[in-house]
Design a protein around this nucleic acid. Structure first.
Lengths: 335, 335
DNA sequence: GAGGTGCTTGCGAACGTTTGCATCCATCGG
DNA sequence: CCGATGGATGCAAACGTTCGCAAGCACCTC
């Protein structure tokens, strides 16, 4: 291992100078500086993060906790987090809580101790346990709001997608296609963005003159969609808007099994636009959420918070992507 | 921050004793030991990884480099790596090379410096650059073989899936269904497992009395499959076996677009059994590869290598999962 | 009863880096 | 020409942990 001593010897300076030349270049004479830098990369010097971290208290690493890495939603967020962090010189610890709040809390505590801060994607664990796990940890939330103070003050900065706009676009689209009765396949009642999307749908329904039919709450996966599809048929809606793409795909699959033509007899719309959405047939009409960018922005927020501590939560714009799973309402329906 | 000093004071012992009680419990008297442990977790003590790492030279962290986190294959491997590492008390740095060998090399060097070892999934970068990047780094390869010595000696331990058995099962299955002419939609020529699967197919073809038709090399994604599908139709095969599921799904999609019934007119078989494979219609017949387990085993190998340095590469068994995309060869074909 | 054995504990150095403080030197103003 | 000023550099301490070494002590054996 090549240390700062080796570089110092090679450059003919003291180790302090090496350290300064590398971390605060403006505090060292130009000529000395590049003698040092030259020596450093000739020897292949890399500063020892452990030593540096010990001394400065900064590890140059961030942590990321997600409920399931195999879920394409979180895979994309992870990709974005990693990319942005790396471009800022930070490395990222990733941890998968397997949807278990207890594991999640433990992961947060474990990683918080060896990182400068955490990005946490925890769509469904309850406020109380998340609050406890996050106490004293510099963190940014992905797709979720949470205040640390019981009174709603001291909010954890978060970065989310503009759900209201997304569902508004969905309903506008369906309305324009003549749908008057739209089923909602909601996500888990504990999901922050799930609730938010339902609320947005209700607001949008009024605006677009559409009647909403609540089909129930379902697991935000393929099987949840399968269940939802039967409810949609039972309730006689002409379109269904699902909490997310995975559910929408389950709906599509079930409808095909039951011989229902999509979009001829029923339109289906998802949310998120995971890669998979475009691979189906009919390809899924869905709201494109810039998930990798969301991850990147979360890192930006976190680093800003670590530096000047002036973090501003943000909403990312979304955009409806019309594909094959939505079409005109069947003639004679509604109206 | 609570340090070993605080614990020592609370327990009425020296810091050495605290350190020993926590890391080598057998070297400290039972009564003292649990006085210390009690004090430790009353105060919420967590050993400072930076300090510990600095002193011991072990960071209790492993690195993982993959080409694309959004690819379900690597998402599963990542999940497995993380789970196993965590169960051994290790945290994992994850890095996405975006399929770029130069980035990959840089990531390996960067992470190697702050971890105890690396798990590297690099299916397609060339031997030479990978060898260079891995020099002096304790590493385990996922789904790839590589020797460090130019003469083929000094092999990097690896963990892969039993490709030969997988493709043999595929061909056995297709043969039993009466297929005599099977198209191969191969992966990139630089892919280690791609080559391996083709070789396995050739061996199996002989055994099963099936004629192989090489359709070409395609990108291991959806679009690659779309291309391959047209070739399959052009060549008049009754079944196609794809390099992986993503390609197989692309084939499925294209065949549907072209009005070809699957499996009536053409059977399609994938490889890997990513989650998505079961969601399609027809659901994909494919070879189930235990990818999360593969990630876990990679970690086992790495940790073994770090401890006793007796690493034994291994192959994981695979199993054909027959679903809807494969069926009897159309009557009158072949024979 | 004296010397030895082995278990438990404490002391202090070391890991590699950063940084406050001191030193040195050149430049500048009076 | 001398003292002040300030930029560049070096010295040494400190970050929190681990571990070699040695001291202390109780117990055992001859």
């Amino acid at each position: 291992m090549v240390t700062v001593h080796d570089v110092a010897r090679a450059a003919g300076v003291s180790i302090s100078t090496v350290s300064r030349a590398l971390s605060t270049p403006e505090r060292v004479a130009a000529e000395t500086r590049d003698r040092v830098t030259r020596a450093a990369d000739e020897l292949g010097y890399r500063t020892n993060r452990a030593a540096s971290g010990l001394r400065r208290g900064r590890m140059h690493a961030v942590g990321l906790v997600v409920p399931d890495l195999e879920n394409p939603y979180f895979a994309s967020v992870t990709k974005g987090v990693q990319a942005r962090a790396r471009s800022e010189g930070y490395d990222v610890f990733v941890a998968d809580s397997d949807e278990d709040p207890a594991v999640e809390a433990e992961l947060i505590r474990a990683l918080a101790a060896r990182t400068d801060g955490m990005v946490v994607a925890s769509p469904r664990s309850d406020d109380e346990s998340l609050r406890a796990a996050l106490a004293g940890v510099p963190a940014v939330l992905a797709s979720r709001e949470l205040s640390l103070g019981a009174d709603g003050a001291d909010e954890v900065p978060y970065i989310a997608v503009d759900d209201a706009s997304g569902v508004d676009q969905v309903l506008g689209h369906l309305s324009a296609l003549g749908h008057r009765s739209v089923g909602i396949a909601a996500g888990p009642p504990t999901s922050w963005s799930g609730l938010r999307r339902v609320a947005g749908l209700e607001a949008a329904a009024e605006r677009w003159g559409v009647t909403l039919v609540e089909l129930g709450s379902f697991q935000p996966y393929f099987q949840g969609g399968v269940q939802a599809a039967d409810h949609a048929l039972a309730r006689g809606v002409t379109a269904v808007t699902a909490f997310n793409d995975l559910m929408a795909i389950g709906i599509l699959d079930r409808l095909r099994d039951r011989g229902v033509d999509v979009p001829g007899e029923m339109s289906v719309v998802g949310f998120d636009d995971v890669r998979m959405a475009a691979m189906f047939s009919p390809a899924l009409t869905t709201v494109h959420a810039p998930l990798a960018r969301l991850g990147g922005r979360a890192v930006d927020l976190l680093l800003a918070r670590l530096r000047d501590s002036a973090p501003a939560s943000a909403q990312l714009p979304v955009e409806l992507v019309v594909r094959g799973s939505s079409g005109p309402a069947p003639a004679g329906a509604g109206t």
